[in-house]
């Protein structure tokens, strides 16, 4: 009897330990990822010089006299993300308003499933369709020698961030208390006025979270933009071929060596810092909502 009891206690303690280890594994992963990125990314930044690396305007990693400036990539990522957010967020919010407040139950169920399906479609498919439809279209419409440019990338990114913007905004709009809207309607406001002057402002922290989520998704997207952006390290302008932070890492990784390879890890480190800042911001926004 006593024997089984001690055995039971050992088992309990063991399971306790196992679950504790499992619990801390995500913390361990975050630390490992950070450490590996810093160890492999920092030396090249030191060698090139942080100022020259971050603000250098020329990236020519394979030339005889190589220079490693990633300002073009940083600006391209920022412009591309901003472009996608500026176009995508209004469309996404309006669509969320429709699903949440205006559409009949059946309509909103259909659109919601379509949005869910869009969010599940692999990014390479967006890239493929962008390559075949959007790139030639942009070339024809603006009479350019090549349609693979920042503008095409922005269009593809816009479509890719729409599902997350819509679904998070919709959740936020659904959570607005009915009384707010009823009060507004009772005071004589029309349905549309109520939606835009009462519901949307009341859901603004959730909507802001959806925007930040969209930014995170756009800045981290690699494969789809790789297929439509032309992948040339130019300083960004709307109709020139460009390279993003993500695609800079992906496009040269397979053949890079030496300092060039280390510089790619440094780019990843810069991207990681961007993402951490966005995450931090998202956390602050969400936390404020909870209070």
């Amino acid at each position: 009897m006593k024997n089984t009891l001690t055995r039971k206690k050992t088992l309990e303690n063991m399971m306790n330990l196992i679950f504790t280890i499992c619990g801390f594994i995500s913390v361990a992963f975050v630390i490992v990822i950070t450490v590996f990125l810093i160890i492999s990314g920092a030396p090249a930044i030191g060698e090139i010089g942080i100022f020259k690396f971050l603000f250098g305007k020329v990236w020519s990693s394979t030339s005889a006299n190589p220079s490693y400036g990633i300002l073009p990539f940083i600006l391209t990522s920022v412009y591309g993300t901003l472009g996608a957010v500026v176009i995508g967020v209004p469309i996404g919010i309006l669509c969320a308003v429709y699903i949440s407040k205006i559409a009949r139950k059946k309509e909103s169920a259909i659109i919601r499933s379509a949005v869910e399906l869009l969010s599940g479609i692999p990014s390479v498919i967006y890239g493929l369709v962008g390559m075949i439809i959007i790139v030639p279209f942009v070339r024809e419409a603006f009479d350019l020698p090549d349609g693979a440019n920042l503008f095409s990338a922005i269009i593809v990114l816009t479509i890719m961030i729409l599902p997350s913007v819509i679904s998070v905004s919709e959740t936020a709009l659904n959570a607005v208390p009915k009384e707010y809207e009823e009060a507004s309607l009772a005071l004589g406001a029309t349905k549309t006025e109520t939606v835009f002057k009462v519901s949307v402002p009341a859901a603004k922290s959730g909507i802001l979270a959806s925007v930040v989520l969209g930014i995170g998704r756009a800045i981290g997207e690699a494969m789809a933009v790789m297929m439509v952006s032309g992948n040339v390290p130019n300083m960004p302008s709307l109709f020139s071929s460009v390279r993003f932070l993500t695609t800079a890492v992906a496009s040269e990784m397979s053949y890079a060596s030496g300092l060039q390879r280390e510089a790619l890890f440094s780019i990843a480190l810069v991207l990681f810092v961007f993402i951490l800042i966005i995450n931090l911001f998202l956390n602050l926004v969400v936390k404020r909502k909870e209070h």
Partner: peptide, 21 residues
């Protein structure tokens, strides 16, 4: 917080870190 951070990291960084590790 760590879990949220993991879910926000883009897949290209996972690819790179996976390659390193």
């Amino acid at each position: 917080l760590a879990t949220e951070t993991l879910s926000g990291i883009p897949s290209i960084i996972y690819g790179l870190v996976g390659m390193l590790i």
